[in-house]
């Protein structure tokens, strides 16, 4: 389904005409990637500004939605494409994320993290939903086993944040790293992680928790707690 078709089915509440026009006007999702790249750290501490942006979106301000897209479109699309492995699906996911923000801006809770974290979280959960739906429809061929860790090591880290996260991931014990990356990038449930790694489910759960905790600690130590 193209992203325009997706809009037709998804933009049913709120202000569909506006959201369709605004989101279509940015054209290909991939096109926003370059422009949005620079936004990374510069928006890190902007929680008051983020609140204003979300408040403007809540009033139906199209310019605010465009601004949100220009800033975070790249991040959202990148996560979606990495998890779904499919550019078309990623466009749909990205559309869903921004439509969701447009229609339900009150879903943003600044107590729980930055706007950037919220959008990344929405992108991931929508992308995971897509993968699981697809798996449920047609049992696809077994996807590749943990190539993920080496993929990640080869990532050309262009932003400071990604670089620090990359270091945190590299520093994880192997068993935690493999489990975390399988869950995040390959949309595996912890049960699937357990089956795939041939470990008890309880062990999978604790590896995911401990691994994420370590990453969180690294980010906090590097002073990125405020950023996220």
């Amino acid at each position: 389904m193209s992203h325009r078709a997706a809009l037709g089915t998804l933009a049913i509440g709120g202000n569909p005409l506006v959201s369709r026009r605004v989101l279509s006007s940015v054209g290909e999702w991939g096109g926003a990637r370059v422009g949005a790249r620079g936004a990374g750290l510069s928006t890190s501490m902007a929680s008051a500004e983020e609140l204003r942006l979300v408040a403007r979106i809540a009033t139906g301000d199209e310019a605010a939605l465009r601004q949100l897209y220009a800033r975070y479109g790249s991040l959202v699309y990148s996560i979606a494409v990495r998890v779904t492995g499919d550019r078309c699906a990623a466009e749909d996911v990205a559309q869903q994320v921004f439509i969701r923000v447009w229609e339900r801006p009150a879903g943003f809770d600044p107590e729980r993290g930055s706007l950037r974290t919220w959008l990344a979280t929405l992108a991931h959960s929508r992308a995971v939903d897509h993968v699981r739906r697809e798996q449920a429809c047609h049992r696809r061929e077994q996807r590749q086993l943990p190539g993920a860790p080496s993929d990640v090591e080869e990532v050309a880290t262009s932003s400071a944040v990604a670089e620090r996260v990359g270091r945190a991931v590299d520093a994880l014990p192997d068993d935690q790293r493999v489990a975390v990356l399988l869950a995040y990038y390959d949309a595996r449930t912890y049960r699937e992680v357990a089956a795939e790694l041939d470990i008890p489910e309880g062990t999978a759960k604790s590896r995911l928790r401990l691994g994420l905790r370590r990453i969180a600690r690294c980010l906090e130590q590097e002073g990125l707690g405020a950023w996220t």
Partner: peptide, 10 residues
């Protein structure tokens, strides 16, 4: 926040 950091890596 840590999970969102993994998204930055993507």
């Amino acid at each position: 926040r840590a999970a969102a950091g993994l998204g930055e890596l993507a």
